[in-house]
Amino acid sequence: MSLQACDITFAYDGAQPLYQGLSLDVEPGERVALAAPSGAGKTTLCRILAGYVEPQAGRVLVDGAPLVPLARRRGAVARTSQPVQLLAQHPEQAFDPRLRVGKSLREGVAGLPGAVRAEAEAALAAYAGAGAGRPGDSDGACGPAGPAGPAAAAAARPCTALLERFGVRPAWLTRFPHELSGGELMRCAMVRALLARPRYLIADESTAMLDALTQAQLWRALIAEADARGLGLVLVSHAPALVSRVATRVVEL
């Protein structure tokens, strides 16, 4: 039961291979930091682990089953969500610019089984509705804004609780990505990844562009969530202080 990379070899076209026969093992509940100088292929390894890129040799196993790369997901597999979710460095590039953020969040629950998915979608809609009813709290207020009125009943649902824990305000769900700041989008990106109920989460320089306070808030929330669910976490960070705070193990590439 772990996320395993076995004998991975990867090279970009016409370039020296980044690594040959690289193996990595991430247990559930572990927080593994990848350490290497710039250009050594940390981001590429993250993308391989999350199925964005296929290695030329070797394979990735999730709890014993091979990970299906995103490009090869067909049929029944395509309707489930990927068990490894990636948090990119630039959240503004991880959201469809033409979709309202609420709709992007719905993509997070698209791979869940029928009844759970319907409930989560209803909770998201109710949460956004709570924001539309009270436009005044969209700015200025500090901390997570609780839903009121029609959404009060939904507050108990895990989906709504998650949104609140990451401080996503209801009003954001009806906005477009360019109308939110980087920190606000990263909160949404983390919620979206967690809504998909992954077993492993990859954070690639996810908080490098954020201020210290937002960074601390998001990591605290993420670690609490990972501990509660027994998630395995892989992180890449250039900041040694952050790594020593967050990681339970450091792997040199």
Binding site: A216, Q217, W219, A221, A241, S244
Partner: peptide, 8 residues
């Protein structure tokens, strides 16, 4: 700051 308390 992560060097200090990493307090949120």
């Amino acid at each position: 700051m992560p060097e200090h308390d990493f307090d949120d």
